[in-house]
Structure formats: structure tokens, C-alpha cells
């Protein structure tokens, strides 16, 4: 008898879910071991995290506020993956969306009912413009969108810092790196939690419906899965690539708009807060499913919120980021390992 490791062509759904749960638990265990070495009181830290995240109204509100941008950036990355593109640039598109929406809020006079919709449009357009060049470069010159979207993130983040500390700096002098409070807000429905959250969830469900229940969605899935098969079946791969990548940028831009106008109420340096990058993790966790995006965003929100609680207990932000990194690492590992099974064979 010998034990061999055999690759199986595809994993089962239950196996995939189980592998991911194990991955998250393992990441937390590794994190706990590290904490134990630093001499922290694990029990105390744990109960504090649970209480401040789930045990209070403010904790739950925070979860909702964090989940909103993550759902959208996760959706943005996921939809680009559907057409076979890696949008690593949700961070930059988020910034562009926040920037464009803020510009409208600050410089377009008018009542809420007029300006707020304009801000939505501006946010989406901002994100779309930010991904336009990478999209065209990929579609017409086969330039990897991985690089181009990533590099534009730095431009986007720095653009925000520039306007928030320079031309658009709050004249009242309250802050050194933010604009004045925006005159228009996304309305709230529960404490601080604004309508951006239900909107993000509805949008995710709508995207899933479009992908599954329209001809266009079918064509996008084929084109993203195998461009050669698309060519064979006369499905216009390039057109779908461009449209979907622009949609991806628009969704990430919308996340930025909601963050500026719903959560922060101003444009401030660092507003993107790695939401774009964490969106990649959300999409990876979601494995191409829209419901998965919502669940992944909720999970990441819990991790981030727990991280904030940990910070109040003297754990620094790098450690928190390390834990999120561990979870992604273990998930990627689980994704690969769930394609293998161990078999016992008789030696030939």
C-alpha cells in the first residue's frame, strides 16, 4: 500500500466551503499564537473584540459602514474576473469616484434632490474614467491590466491627498487633510448607517441576475472563460471586455462616492483606506458568486472592525493587516489543496 496525492478536476461545493472555513480558522489560530507570544491575554482580547463588534449598537453600525464599500469593491473585482480581467485598481477608481462626487458636491449649487443624483453619476463616471486607459490598453494592445490598474492606484490616492491638503482644504482650519463637510449627504436609515449599504447589496444581486438571466450575461461568461470559444461562437469578446471593465470601474467609483458622501461626509486623505485592495480579497473569497461577495464583504468587515477593537487594546494596525493577509494566504492555499485528494494505492 502506498499513499498518493491525486489531483481531482474540480472540487465539490461543500468541500470548497469547508476548506475556506478551515482556512479562516487556521489563520485565526496562527494569529492567536503570535498574540500569545507577545504576552497578550487572549481571552480578554477575544471577549473585547466580540463585545465591541457584535455586542453594541455602535459596533453593528460600524460593521454596516465598513461593509458598504467592501461589497462594492468586491463586486467590482468579481465582475471584472467574469470577463477574465484582474481589476487590481479598485482603490484608485474608488478615489476617483470620491474625488468626482466631492467636486460636484462642493461646486454645483442646488437642492439635495438634484445634486445627490449628480454625485452618484459623477462617482460612477470618475471610476469609469480611471479604468478607461487600462481597459483600452488591454482590449487593443493586450497590455496586462494587472499592472496598469495597480499603478493608477497610487496616482488616485495621491490625488486625494493633494486636493484635500491643498486646493480643497477645509477653510475653517479644523483639519489639515480634508475638505469642508460636504453640503449633501447620502441619507441614513439606521443611526449612522446610510442607504449605501442596501444599495450595494441590491446592486450585487442585480449584477448576479444580469449575469445569469440575460443573453448579455451569458455572452460575458463565455467570453471571460475562453476568448477563443467566444470567437468561435461569434461573441464579441473585445466589446464585452470593455463594457464590463468600465462597469467594474464605475462600481468601485460608486463605492468612493458613498464613502465620501455617506460615511466620511468629506473628502479626506487616505479615504480609500485599502478598501480597493480588500475588495480583491472579497472577490477571491466569493469565488465568482454574488452572494459570496456579500458574505465575503461581511466577513472582511468583521475582521476589520475586530482589528479596530484590537487597536484600542494596543495592537497596532500592521498586525491587523497581517491577519487579513494570513486569511487570504490560507484561503488561496485551501483553494489549491481542495483540488487534491489523498488516495491509497497498491504499489505497482
Amino acid at each position: 500500500m502506498a499513499i498518493r496525492i491525486q489531483r481531482v478536476p474540480s472540487e465539490s461545493l461543500a468541500g470548497g466551503v469547508a476548506a475556506r472555513l478551515v482556512a479562516i480558522v487556521l489563520a485565526l489560530v496562527v494569529a492567536a499564537i503570535v498574540f500569545a507570544f507577545t504576552g497578550a491575554d487572549l481571552g480578554k482580547l477575544g471577549s473585547h473584540v466580540l463585545k465591541s463588534t457584535f455586542g453594541s449598537r455602535f459596533g453593528l453600525m460600524d460593521l454596516g459602514l465598513i461593509m458598504t464599500p467592501l461589497t462594492l469593491t468586491g463586486l467590482a473585482v468579481m465582475i471584472a474576473l467574469k470577463v477574465g480581467a484582474w481589476n487590481i485598481g479598485a482603490e484608485g477608481q474608488f478615489c476617483a469616484g470620491a474625488f468626482a462626487a466631492t467636486a460636484v458636491a462642493l461646486f454645483v449649487p442646488g437642492p439635495n434632490v438634484v445634486v445627490l443624483p449628480l454625485m452618484f453619476v459623477a462617482g460612477a463616471l470618475g471610476g469609469m474614467i480611471w479604468i478607461l486607459i487600462p481597459t483600452l490598453a488591454r482590449a487593443y494592445a493586450d497590455v496586462s491590466e494587472l499592472i496598469t490598474t495597480l499603478l493608477l492606484n497610487f496616482v488616485g490616492v495621491l490625488l486625494i491627498y493633494y486636493v484635500a491638503t491643498g486646493p480643497w482644504l477645509d477653510p475653517s482650519g479644523v483639519s489639515f487633510a480634508s475638505t469642508a463637510r460636504l453640503p449633501h449627504d447620502v441619507p441614513s436609515f439606521w443611526g449612522d448607517v446610510h442607504w449605501g449599504l442596501p444599495l450595494a447589496i441590491l446592486l450585487t444581486i442585480a449584477v448576479a441576475a444580469v449575469l445569469n438571466f440575460t443573453r448579455w450575461g451569458y455572452e460575458v461568461r463565455i467570453a471571460g472563460s475562453n476568448p477563443n470559444a467566444a470567437r468561435y461562437a461569434a461573441i464579441p469578446f473585445r466589446r464585452h471586455l470593455i463594457v464590463v471593465m468600465l462597469m467594474s470601474g464605475a462600481i468601485a467609483g460608486l463605492a468612493g462616492m458613498l464613502e465620501a458622501a455617506g460615511t466620511a461626509h468629506r473628502l479626506q486623505g487616505g479615504i480609500s483606506n485599502n478598501f480597493g485592495y480588500i475588495g480583491i480579497m472579497v472577490a477571491v473569497l466569493a469565488r465568482g458568486s454574488a452572494i459570496g461577495v456579500i458574505a465575503g464583504a461581511a466577513l472582511m468587515a468583521i475582521i476589520l472592525k475586530s482589528g479596530i477593537s484590537l487597536q484600542t487594546q494596543g495592537v497596532n494596525i500592521s498586525t491587523v493587516l497581517a491577519i487579513t493577509g494570513l486569511i487570504l494566504f490560507f484561503t488561496a492555499l485551501a483553494d489549491e489543496l481542495s483540488h487534491y485528494r489523498i488516495v491509497r494505492t497498491k504499489e505497482a
Binding site: 461568461r221 472563460s225 475562453n226 470559444a229
Partner: peptide, 17 residues
């Protein structure tokens, strides 16, 4: 390479025409 999208479902592939 071109007749099928291997990662998509049997249904998706069989109805491509």
C-alpha cells in the same frame, strides 16, 4: 481551446450555438 469553455458548466457549453 476553442470549442468549449472548460471551466463553465455543461449547460453553458452545450447551448453556445
Amino acid at each position: 481551446q476553442s470549442g468549449l469553455a472548460p471551466a463553465l458548466s455543461v449547460t453553458d457549453n452545450v447551448v453556445i450555438r
